[in-house]
């Protein structure tokens, strides 16, 4: 089973999610190679060896400077076709998801996404995919090769094995249409605001707050609990709260001991960023909100009434 793992990099580091997928691929066995795409990324190849890649392909080209998917599809297509990989694995991210889907169409190949496990069963690769708001798990597979898989972020932990990879540089050729989208400004990690990744308690708010000023209610509760305030993508995009506090697929992945989800419906993009939390308390007025499917305590009610009362009770206990 020659397997290729797509490794994503950001600011000179390989992304943890893709290293986790590489670790898993090495555990599953067979020939495991990895590919790094970018400009000035040769130095990252050695790192990939430590996580289980026997060989690392490096596509280093100015066309790959910006983290855009289409030139990467060109690189992966050539690699898969020329070297005969039968399996290509991705750790889900904004970039990797777009690369995987473009590659599926290009080859063509079957793509299974949002996988939370991978195993080889009777010589066959089988993925496990939650469906219907994670209320059911499906065992999914592929008809024919190559097989493409996107693994849900945070699923596999990277483990260093200490090996050394053979590094091979690739000649990069990209198609005209792949170079048409250009990046004018690139995001930088924002450092302002409190770090939510280290907090034991997180009080998070979503669109159900109703207006940006209502974050004040959450700040008071967070302060009483000695925790931090977080937000969903919807309210961050709307400018209600800083990006640095965003939890979810395109934000931070957190695992506090206690997580309050206030006015958060709990769509899958949010869930993947906080499902590892110890205890989840959800407050939402919609009894059908998906968040209740995975909350330990689900409160169907008005957060504008309940949160201030909670703050008051917590303060009373602390004094």
């Amino acid at each position: 089973m020659p397997t290729l793992v797509y490794l994503e990099d950001h600011e000179g580091e390989l992304v943890k999610g893709s290293l986790g997928v590489l670790t898993k691929a090495a555990q599953l066995g067979g020939d495991v190679a990895a590919v790094v795409c970018g400009s000035g990324v040769q130095g990252l190849a050695a790192q990939a060896g430590r996580y289980g890649a026997a060989r690392v392909y490096v596509a280093d080209d100015p066309a790959l400077v910006a983290p855009l998917p289409q030139p990467r599809v060109d690189v992966l297509e050539a690699l898969v076709r020329e070297r005969g990989f039968d399996t290509v694995l991705f750790g889900a991210s904004v970039l990797a998801t777009d690369v995987a889907a473009g590659l599926a169409a290009r080859l063509p190949a079957g793509l299974n996404w949002d996988l939370v496990d991978l195993e080889v069963r009777d010589g066959k690769l089988v993925g496990r995919r939650p469906a219907l708001q994670d209320s059911v798990y499906a065992d999914v597979g592929w008809k024919g090769e190559p097989r493409l898989a996107l693994v849900r972020s945070g699923t596999f932990e990277p483990v260093e094995g200490g090996g050394e990879a053979e590094v091979e540089e690739l000649a990069v050729q990209t198609q005209d249409f792949s170079r048409q989208a250009v990046m004018l400004e690139r995001a930088h990690a924002e450092s302002e605001g409190p770090s939510i990744e280290d907090a034991d308690v997180i009080v998070a708010g979503g669109r159900g707050l109703g207006s940006p000023d209502k974050f004040g209610l959450l700040e008071e509760l967070a302060q009483a609990l000695g925790g931090a305030v977080a937000a969903t993508r919807a309210v961050v995009d709307a400018g209600w709260y800083p990006y640095a506090t965003q939890v979810g697929q395109t934000g931070k992945t957190v695992s506090p001991k206690l997580y309050f989800a206030c006015g958060i419906s709990g769509a899958i993009q949010h869930k993947v960023g906080m499902q590892a939390s110890g205890t989840i308390v959800a407050i939402n007025k919609d009894p059908n909100a998906p968040i209740f499917e995975y909350a330990d305590v689900g409160v169907v009610g008005d957060l504008h009434q309940i949160v201030p009362k909670l703050t008051e009770l917590v303060r009373e206990r602390r004094t």
């Binding site: 209320s135 798990y137 499906a138 065992d139 999914v140 330990d296 169907v300």
Partner: peptide, 20 residues
């Protein structure tokens, strides 16, 4: 080129409490 083999219940999070 993809297929579904089987369905299973998700791992349980343990008992959850609902407050109305």
């Amino acid at each position: 080129r993809t297929e579904v083999y089987a369905l299973a219940d998700p791992p349980s999070r343990g008992d959850s409490v609902r407050i109305e």
